[in-house]
Amino acid sequence: MTLNCFLKTTALAALTAAGGMANAQDVTLRIQTHYATEHPSGKLAAQFADDIETMSGGEIAIEIFFSSSVVASTETFDAAINGILDCDMTSGAYQTGKNPAFQFVGDIMGGYDTPWQQLSWLYYGGGYDAAQELYNAQGMQLIGWWLYGQESLSSAKPIAGFEDLKGWKFRSPPGMETEIFQELGASPIVMDFTEIFTALETGIIDGADASGLYNNVGLGLYDIVKHATYPGFHSMPSDHLACNKDVWDGLSEKHRRIIDTAMQKLTLHTALSNEKKNAEAAAELTAAGVTLYDWSAEDRAEFRKAAQTTWDRWATKTPEAAALVKSHKAYLGQLGLLASD
């Protein structure tokens, strides 16, 4: 090798090394989710992390803690506030104890019919700014949502319309849902998610609000009960990605854009994949003798009316709750989904 050739090769190696140093990982984000690695949503979260690492050229590393392995699911938000984690990938609905307004970013019951409508409120209906005030007051930054669509009610008896709710004993999560269903004559029983199967099996409850149709199949609910609502109408929970605001503000604009883009991809594929899986589950359940009920427009309107009456009570709890209810109502009115008196 000539001296000239050697110098060129050495210079190229030095430039390559310098470029490698410039692209070296300089951000690590610790994120906790309540989903397990093998759960469909857990797999999508893993893809989300890979997308960020790939798009950033390795400048951002994402460390995801699955199955709430660091702290309990409901404590994830505080863990991010206090620096134990950087971001929370669970649900805003877990934080209603901090402020009832979190109900209206976690599960806007009786509101939107589709995930696309709910997401359009966030991105195009003023929702992002309204919600951001709530998060920022806690020292957190809302990055985005990932939601899988309407949940299905499962029942041991027919549940064809709101009249069938009278006296219906079912598992309910805590919070606003119990008030709505009580107003319609049902008997919601708050119990942990893990207790549903045994409670159905022993007849303690007649049914359950657990998850979407596909997920309910995975839980084995339809081995016990043979009735379900589909497509659902009552609940469409949105999981969030929320990060410690100081951590988020400390990222470069480039890194924030990458994370936001990856989040929007996660949002799209969460809704799309669950729509496909729910449709497949519906066909399989129908063939297996499970009866699925698509509530009429009139019965849906009755439920929406009861839900939005409950919203108004919750709106009196804090100014932030009032602001979010006002925002949702304005946008639902534009979509023609606001309950009429």
Score class of each variant (00 low, 15 high):
A321M: 07
T291Q: 14
T286S: 05
A323Q: 09
E275C: 00
V325L: 04
L266E: 09
H269N: 14
L285K: 03
E280N: 14
D312M: 05
K276C: 00
T318W: 06
H269P: 00
W311P: 07
E284G: 00
N278C: 10
A301I: 11
A323F: 04
T318K: 01
R304I: 08
R304W: 09
A306H: 12
K276T: 11
A307Y: 09
A262P: 01
F303N: 02
A322H: 14
A297F: 02
R300V: 12
Q308W: 07
E284P: 00
E302F: 09
A322K: 15
L272D: 07
F303S: 04
G289L: 08
H269V: 08
K317V: 00
S273H: 10
L285M: 04
T270W: 05
A271S: 10
A315N: 10
K305Q: 13
K277D: 15
A282P: 03
A315T: 04
R313L: 14
N278L: 11
Q308C: 07
A282G: 06
T267G: 00
L268V: 12
A271C: 09
W311M: 10
T291M: 05
L266D: 07
A262Q: 01
A321E: 05
K265L: 08
K276W: 01
A281H: 04
T309V: 08
A321D: 05
A322Y: 04
L324A: 06
V325W: 03
V290G: 08
T310H: 01
K277M: 15
H269W: 13
V290D: 12
V290Q: 10
E320N: 11
T318L: 05
M263G: 00
E284D: 14
T270L: 02
W311E: 14
A281T: 10
A321R: 01
S273T: 13
A301H: 06
K305E: 10
K277R: 12
A288V: 08
T261I: 04
L268R: 13
T310C: 13
D299I: 05
E302T: 15
E280P: 07
A287N: 11
T316H: 11
A279M: 12
R304N: 12
W314N: 10
T318F: 06
